[in-house]
């Protein structure tokens, strides 16, 4: 696994995490919560090799875990699982279609959100109206951010691949 690739994959994820926390900071006065797990997973799982993608997911997941009062590793495990599922299906999804990518991010986000509800609210003790509001808010924001984030990641990936190609050429 190439560390430079990994670093360039993780950089937008860290930026996404920062944006997510800032959005949550703003939304807190309205008692809303933005969850963007689908964005973390979808584009990397769709485009990147398995090893690099999984490693990026685990790192991003651990960063999220460190900042949330959940068992350390919860985000990482769920992101990893979601990554594997998307990776397994990616042959059937057009990679360059923005709409398909956005839909994939929305579905992934929805699945991850439900997984968190199941883990953090065992026995159905969750305040459902609040969760519904959070989910709607998250899905809207994910839908808005997905094209931009896909483009950002695409740029980073291009950067990675160009750098890797140049390096390979240099070595030749």
């Amino acid at each position: 696994m190439n560390l430079r690739r990994l670093a360039l994959l993780c950089a937008p994820l860290l930026l996404l995490w920062g944006i997510q926390t800032e959005v949550n900071h703003v939304l807190s006065s309205h008692q809303l919560f933005f969850f963007s797990g689908g964005l973390f997973v979808a584009f990397i799982a769709l485009t990147q090799p398995f090893g690099a993608g999984l490693a990026a997911m685990l790192i991003a997941g651990l960063a999220c875990d460190a900042n949330a009062p959940v068992a350390f590793g919860t985000h990482a495990a769920l992101f990893g699982l979601a990554h594997n599922i998307v990776h397994r299906m990616r042959d059937r999804i057009p990679k360059d279609d923005a709409v398909a990518g956005t839909l994939l991010a929305l579905f992934t986000n929805f699945g991850l959100f439900l997984a968190f509800v199941a883990i953090l609210s065992p026995g159905g003790a969750a305040p459902l109206p609040r969760l519904a509001a959070d989910l709607v808010c998250s899905q809207v924001l994910v839908a808005l951010a997905a094209p931009w984030f896909a483009a950002l990641q695409s740029c980073c990936i291009t950067l990675v691949e160009t750098a890797l190609a140049l390096r390979a050429e240099r070595l030749r």
Binding site: T21, H25, S28, F33, A68, P69, L120, S121, D134
Partner: peptide, 11 residues
Amino acid sequence: ARRDFSAWWQR
């Protein structure tokens, strides 16, 4: 520095 209010935690 940051407010983080979800249905499960408020920090």
